[in-house]
Amino acid sequence: MALYSEKVMDHFRNPRNVGVIEDADGVGEVGNAKCGDIMKMYLKIDNDIITDVKFETFGCGSAIASSSMATELIKGRPVDEALQLTNKAVAEALDGLPDYKMHCSVLAEEAIKNALDDYHSKKDLKTEG
């Protein structure tokens, strides 16, 4: 049996939504180089809908595949729906991850939450100012 499912390998080999959004409405970065995985998510949000999302990842195969899958799952979705995304849902959408790789899907969930927090705090600043 291969290390990863076909789905994981597909997202790893052809990651969706790779890149940077220069004028992002929310940016989130999680993980650290010490543990070996870092994810950065960029969101473009219009009327509380995620209209565009890009990511950059330093990490293993499952970290890259999880980032890619997570961006697909939230693209075009309302912000409050994206906030509900769990790492389990990411892993399931990838047809599963090995147990010791589940932390990579947790990072994807956290990166999105982190980017949405950033979006909310920027929005609060705007309405206050």
């Binding site: 080999r13 070996g36 995985d37 990490g59 293993c60 195969g61 970290a63 890259i64």
Partner: peptide, 20 residues
Amino acid sequence: ESLLLLLDDKGISASSGSAC
């Protein structure tokens, strides 16, 4: 690990000391 997986796709078997 991602380096190894992509090298495997190119037909090269190698190893790494990465955590993953």
